[in-house]
Simulated assay, not measured.
Amino acid sequence: MSKKDKNNATANESVDEQIKDINENSSEDTRTVEEQLTEELAHEKDKFLRLFAEFENYKRRTAKERSDLFKTASQDVIVSLLPVLDDFDRAYTEIAKTEEKDLLKGVELIKNKFRNTLENKGLELMNLQAGDEFNADNHEAITQIPAPNDSLKGKIIDVVEKGYKLGDKIIRFPKVVIGQ
């Protein structure tokens, strides 16, 4: 082999080694780029899922706040109408004592229509009677009197003012007299 051929062979070997090194380095660089892109993709997916979950929580929270707002808006109006309902009950009781049956029937019709309208909006009367157990969470004791008999001790003797619920919430506690 001539000197020229030897130099060409050495040069070819050197070029082959350089190409091999470049290929190895580029495959390592490609792997690191792929790994970086995979990590970035995983990070962005995690960020997206967190943002999506936060948005779902926001929607749920605002829907609940909105329904609560509607409930409390109607609650204020209904609470302000409860004294009118009490007045109808008192008027009905007093007119029932007279002989004016037509007047009694008219007041009864108006009272029932008013009560039905409020009940359609969610108002519910808390039914209490003398002899029911007193519960400080659900009743407001305005006074205690000596019980007429031992079976009425700690129980409701009289209901002074009716209590009402709007949905599950008590909007006016019944005022009661309890036996001592």
Score class of each variant (00 low, 15 high):
M1I: 05
M1P: 09
N7A: 13
N8C: 12
S14R: 09
K20R: 12
N23V: 13
N25V: 01
T30K: 07
T30E: 13
E35T: 14
L37G: 07
L41Y: 15
K45P: 01
R50Q: 12
R50K: 14
F52M: 12
F55T: 14
E56L: 11
E56I: 08
N57S: 10
R61L: 15
A63T: 00
A63M: 10
L69K: 14
L69H: 15
F70I: 08
V77H: 00
V77P: 00
I78M: 04
V79K: 10
V79L: 07
S80A: 13
S80R: 11
D86W: 07
D87E: 07
D89R: 14
R90Q: 08
T93K: 09
T98E: 07
E99Q: 07
L104S: 07
L104Y: 12
G106P: 00
I110Y: 13
F114D: 00
N116M: 11
L118N: 04
E119Y: 01
L123A: 06
E124Y: 00
L125D: 04
A130K: 10
N135R: 09
A136K: 09
A136G: 15
E140T: 09
Q144D: 13
P146W: 01
P146Y: 01
D150N: 04
L152Q: 02
K155N: 05
E161A: 10
K165T: 05
I171R: 02
F173T: 13
P174F: 06
V176S: 05
